[in-house]
Nucleic acid binder design. Structure first.
Lengths: 196, 196
DNA sequence: GTCTATACCGAGATAGAC
DNA sequence: GTCTATCTCGGTATAGAC
C-alpha cells in the first residue's frame, strides 16, 4: 500500500500525461486517488507546484537511468549506443512517465514554458556529456566513421526522438520491430565503412 | 483583408497549436480576431466542430503538398526522398500548421482521440502509397540497397518524426543545419553500397 | 453578424469542523 | 488529513436587441 502523497503523484503523472496540463483537473486527480480535491492541498501548495515537481522527478529519473546504462557497460560504442536507444525508447513507452516526458518536452503549458524549457536544456547538457565520449571513443577505435561527433550525436537524438514519437501510435510488438529496423539503418549510416 | 471566417480559423489554428485544445479558450480566439466570443457561433457550431474541421484542413493540406512534391519531380529516389524530407520538416516548422499537426497527432484531446486517430490513419495510408513506389524504384535502380521497402519507409518516417520534433526546440538556423546532417546519415544508411 | 446579458458549469483555491 | 461549504473566476453555450 502506497502512501497517499505518492499515490497522488502517480495519479497526477498519468493524468497530466494523458490529458495535458489544462485537461488534467484537480478533481480528476483527486477522484482517481479516492479523495476530494480540497484534500490535495495537504500534499501540495498548488497545481503548478505539483506539476513542476513531477517535471523535475521525471527528468532526473531518466538521467539516472541513462547514467547507469552508459557508464555501467564497458562494451563497444555500438553496444552502448544501442543500449541507450533501447532504454530511452523503453522509458518513453512506460505509460505515464514516458508520455509525460514527451508531452511536456514538446508542448509545455504556456504559462510554465520557460521553467520547463530551462530544466530541459540543463538536462540535455547532461546527456551530451554522457554520450559524446562514447562517440569519440567509437571514432578513435575506427568503429564509427570519422566525422564531427556532435553531428553524429544529433543524428542519434533525431532517430531516438522519431522512434519515441512512434512508440505512441503503434502497438507494442510492431513498435519493437520497427525499432530494430530503425537502429539497423542508423548504425549503417554512422559506422566505419571501407567505401569512400 | 481576409474574411472573418478565415480569420477565425487562422487564429484558432495558432491558439490550438500553442496552447492545446483545452488551453485555447474561445475568448482567446475571439480576442485575437477582435470580436466577442458569442460571435464565434455565427461561424461554427461548437468548439469541437471548429477544432475537427481544422484537423481535416491541416491533414489534407499536407497530403496535397506531398503529392505535388512526389509526383511532380522526376528525379532520382534520393532527390525525391530528400525533397519530401525537406518539405515535411518545412511544413512542420510553419508556425501554426506544423505545430498543430504535431501537437494533435501525438496528443489529441482525449474526448476526440478516436476521431483524430482515425483521420490520421487514413492519412498515413495515403503517404505510404505515395512513397513506397519511390523506394521500390530506387531499389530496382540499385540506388537504394536491396531490403524490404516498408522497413526503409519506416526508417524514413522515423527520421522525419525525429527531425520534426527537433524543429520545435532549436532555432531555425541550427535546425536547418541539423536537418542536413541527419539526412546525410540516413541516406548513407539506406543507399546502395558496395560493401557487404 | 455582432453585440450585451445571462445561464450553467467546473475550474483552482481557502476556511473551518471533525 | 480529510471532509463540506464556499469563494471567485473563467469556461462553453444560448437568447434576443440592434
Amino acid at each position: 500500500m502506497k502512501e497517499r502523497g505518492k499515490a497522488i503523484r502517480t495519479a497526477a503523472l498519468h493524468l497530466f500525461a494523458e490529458e495535458g496540463y489544462e485537461g488534467a483537473s484537480l478533481s480528476k486527480i483527486a477522484g482517481r486517488v479516492g479523495i476530494r480535491k480540497s484534500s490535495l492541498y495537504n500534499h501540495c501548495s498548488s497545481k503548478e507546484d505539483l506539476f513542476l515537481s513531477l517535471v523535475e522527478e521525471v527528468y532526473s529519473r531518466y538521467i539516472q537511468e541513462l547514467k547507469k546504462i552508459v557508464s555501467g557497460s564497458t562494451g563497444t560504442a555500438e553496444k552502448k549506443l544501442y543500449s541507450t536507444f533501447i532504454a530511452t525508447t523503453d522509458f518513453i513507452t512506460r505509460e505515464g512517465t514516458g508520455r509525460f516526458y514527451m508531452h511536456f518536452l514538446l508542448f509545455p503549458p504556456s504559462e510554465l514554458e520557460e521553467k520547463v524549457r530551462t530544466r530541459f536544456l540543463s538536462f540535455e547538457e547532461e546527456t551530451n556529456q554522457l554520450l559524446l565520449p562514447v562517440l569519440k571513443k567509437g571514432i578513435a577505435d575506427r568503429e564509427i566513421r570519422d566525422s564531427d561527433p556532435s553531428i553524429l550525436l544529433h543524428a542519434f537524438y533525431c532517430m531516438i526522438d522519431g522512434m519515441s514519437s512512434q512508440m505512441f501510435y503503434y502497438p507494442a510488438l510492431e513498435a519493437a520491430q520497427k525499432r530494430e529496423h530503425a537502429w539497423g539503418i542508423f548504425w549503417r549510416g554512422i559506422r566505419h565503412g571501407k567505401e569512400q
